[in-house]
Simulated scan of single mutants.
Amino acid sequence: MDSSHLGAIAGDKASKDSARVRRAEAFDQAFMETGSVLLLSWHHFQELFSHRSEEVAAQRVAYLQSLPLVAAIDSFLKEDIVGSVADLQSFEIAAAFQNPAASATSVREEAAKTIFRITSGAELVRPFLESWTALREGFGDSEEHTREVVAISKSSFAGNSDAKVGDLLKDGMRAPGDMLRQFQRLHRGLAADIRERGDTRIPDADHTTRAFMKDVIRVGTEVVRPDNPGLRILQAWGFDLSDIGPDTTLGDIGDMAVFRRKLEVLNVKLRLPWPELIARVKEDRLPSGIIYNAIRRFHPNTHEWDGSELTDRYLACLAAYADVTYVDKRTYEAFRLARQKSETFAALARHVEKAGSYDAIPGQLAARFAQVATT
């Protein structure tokens, strides 16, 4: 279920308005009668508990504690905390590694055997309360960072994502003056994009841009050499010429580099042999990777790049496993387009719904389950 619906239910449950309380109680009863079980992940808790108001956050804690039975993404290492999309991906990577010829659908079926944990809402909430103040602060910092990540990733300030890597490998190193002018151009373009279209809660577009460009310059300075700067960058990302085809673009390499970095981070837990891991596991065999990238690609290009879009993509990955996944209207549209464009996506993503109000959900679920029962 979408975090906004859960927040609304919690607010009604805690209301002094008896009509709102009855509405929430009626939902609980109707939802239970559908035979459904709520599926939660770390990202639900992060969105719900990061609200600025301590009172609102406490209401949400109380509501989740009241749930007698919930399903959750399990921690890959069986830690005492609800799992995130990183845990979900770890289960998928382990399945894909053990079955190198398995399709994404087969990887999904294998991962689904181990990713779920059935427990009570109170048990899921308990670890958060043990570190409540620190977690609340951490959630706030994470939200700020997420807004910047979304803005930078959606900006086309570099303007060269379609450039062929093979062509760039033929180029030599720019003169110092040219490099300076190039970085100044990139800085102006990114800062302008963040000011005009970035999440309005980003306090200082220039500060965000300076911090990002500083990292770009630092990394570039460490790896670029005059002999072949393009090749040195590829090598720094862990690629060689065998990874590059005639039509490989900078955008493709960027996506590959992001996935390679994810593998590095997740392999701290997985502990799989690195050469075999990168040879066996590609993102197009991971259900979460396919869904995440499709939602990123087909998400409506809104004027403001809302920081919540990143969490929406994470939660969208649950659609490979949940019988019904509730999303907002923009993500719903991305699912619709992705199903039309990709048979693989359509085979992986189960039923997706949207609801303007949470009290519409039990009726939608009942209708969906009745439809499935007759087919």
Results as ranks from 00 to 15, higher is better:
residue 213 M to S: 01
residue 293 N to R: 14
residue 39 L to W: 05
residue 214 K to Q: 05
residue 32 M to T: 09
residue 74 D to L: 10
residue 211 A to F: 07
residue 268 V to A: 14
residue 310 L to F: 13
residue 311 T to K: 07
residue 97 F to V: 13
residue 280 R to E: 02
residue 301 N to T: 10
residue 241 L to I: 15
residue 65 Q to D: 05
residue 36 S to K: 04
residue 370 A to I: 04
residue 340 Q to G: 12
residue 201 R to P: 01
residue 137 E to H: 12
residue 284 D to C: 03
residue 181 R to M: 10
residue 241 L to R: 15
residue 34 T to V: 14
residue 181 R to Y: 14
residue 247 D to V: 06
residue 115 I to S: 01
residue 265 V to L: 04
residue 86 A to M: 03
residue 285 R to D: 06
residue 228 N to Q: 12
residue 155 S to I: 01
residue 71 A to W: 13
residue 167 D to P: 07
residue 165 V to Q: 00
residue 235 Q to K: 01
residue 131 S to D: 05
residue 290 I to L: 13
residue 260 R to K: 14
residue 142 S to W: 13
residue 252 D to H: 02
residue 164 K to H: 08
residue 274 W to A: 14
residue 327 V to G: 00
residue 273 P to A: 03
residue 160 N to F: 11
residue 33 E to V: 11
residue 351 H to P: 01
residue 130 E to I: 08
residue 228 N to L: 11
residue 47 E to H: 13
residue 184 Q to T: 08
residue 276 E to M: 15
residue 147 R to G: 04
residue 148 E to W: 02
residue 252 D to N: 07
residue 363 G to Q: 08
residue 368 R to H: 11
residue 235 Q to R: 04
residue 125 V to W: 04
residue 363 G to K: 14
residue 115 I to F: 12
residue 221 T to D: 11
residue 76 F to S: 04
residue 163 A to I: 06
residue 162 D to Q: 06
residue 315 L to I: 09
residue 64 L to V: 10
residue 124 L to G: 03
residue 155 S to E: 02
residue 355 A to K: 02
residue 140 G to E: 07
residue 245 G to W: 06
residue 304 E to P: 07
residue 61 V to F: 03
residue 11 G to M: 04
residue 142 S to G: 13
residue 206 D to N: 07
residue 160 N to R: 03
residue 48 L to M: 12
residue 12 D to V: 00
residue 83 G to C: 08
residue 245 G to Y: 04
residue 82 V to E: 03
residue 207 H to M: 07
residue 186 L to N: 06
residue 347 A to P: 04
residue 31 F to N: 00
residue 15 S to C: 05
residue 339 R to Q: 15
residue 243 D to G: 07
residue 371 Q to P: 11
residue 364 Q to V: 06
residue 319 A to E: 03
residue 57 A to D: 00
residue 345 F to L: 08
residue 362 P to R: 12
residue 77 L to V: 11
residue 285 R to F: 06
residue 97 F to E: 00
residue 244 I to H: 09
